[in-house]
């Protein structure tokens, strides 16, 4: 976030930063609330990542378009409403065309509203940027989030259930580590992923000091 405030990177820069050194989940510690709950299966994670990309990019676009008309004092409220509307649209679409998926995701689709990534990008970038960069920034941050989630989901489904997108990968003698499917397993997987990422790229966010 700090990098974006200091300089004005081009479209490619925005996308690169959001996927890598400003990755919302790993570096900015945003949005891990829902990052873990739905990573038990790759299929639910794909849908969730896609939903978040749609909501973040469109909300950022909308906030950016409205930025000169939103009164400063109530801007958080307005941003929340914009986000809620897009989340409702996604929720209704899933309910209408993918009922099974909607049931599997449960209330976590609705919880995109309070996913700090969406509000964070609206507040930190979209509210004072032109529509196109805001849209790209939202899309890229959504993609950065989806990427990490997908990585965790692959680990959890592959080792925890021995399957990938529902197809079994390992020979029948493989003993899946059921533990990875449980809540503690999700936490430990994320912890280890963060550890590995920071060991390989030590410069990515020394200490997380973002609140919220």
């Amino acid at each position: 976030m700090a990098a974006l405030q200091n300089s004005k990177p081009g479209p490619m820069g925005i996308i690169r930063d959001a996927l890598g050194k400003d990755n919302p989940v790993l570096v900015q510690v945003l949005g891990i609330c829902s990052a873990l709950a739905i990573t038990g299966l790759v299929s639910t994670t794909l849908v969730m990542g896609l939903a978040l990309m749609i909501v973040t990019s469109l909300s950022c676009l909308m906030v950016s378009v409205l930025r000169s008309t939103i009164p400063y004092r109530v801007r958080l409220m307005v941003q929340m409403m914009v986000i809620s509307v897009f989340v409702i649209l996604v929720h209704l679409y899933l309910r209408a065309y993918h009922l099974e998926m909607s049931k599997a995701l449960g209330p976590y689709v609705g919880l995109i509203i309070t996913n700090c990534i969406v509000l964070g990008r609206c507040e930190a970038f979209a509210i004072r940027s032109k529509p196109l960069p805001a849209f790209l920034d939202g899309l890229a941050n959504g993609a950065g989030y989806a990427l990490v989630l997908l990585f965790i989901a692959v680990i959890r489904e592959l080792l925890g259930g021995g399957t990938l997108l529902g197809h079994s990968v390992f020979p029948a003698s493989f003993q899946p580590a059921m533990f990875l499917k449980t809540a503690p397993g999700a936490f430990l997987t994320l912890g280890v992923v963060v550890w590995v990422v920071k060991s390989i790229w030590p410069q990515t966010g020394a200490a997380p000091n973002h609140e919220g």
Binding site: L26, I32, P184, G185, F187, G191, V192, V194, W195
Partner: peptide, 15 residues
């Protein structure tokens, strides 16, 4: 060092 901050916090949460 790589585990300080978020990594450690998440692992403790897991435990």
């Amino acid at each position: 060092l790589p585990l300080q901050g978020l990594g450690m916090a998440v692992i403790i949460t897991g435990l």
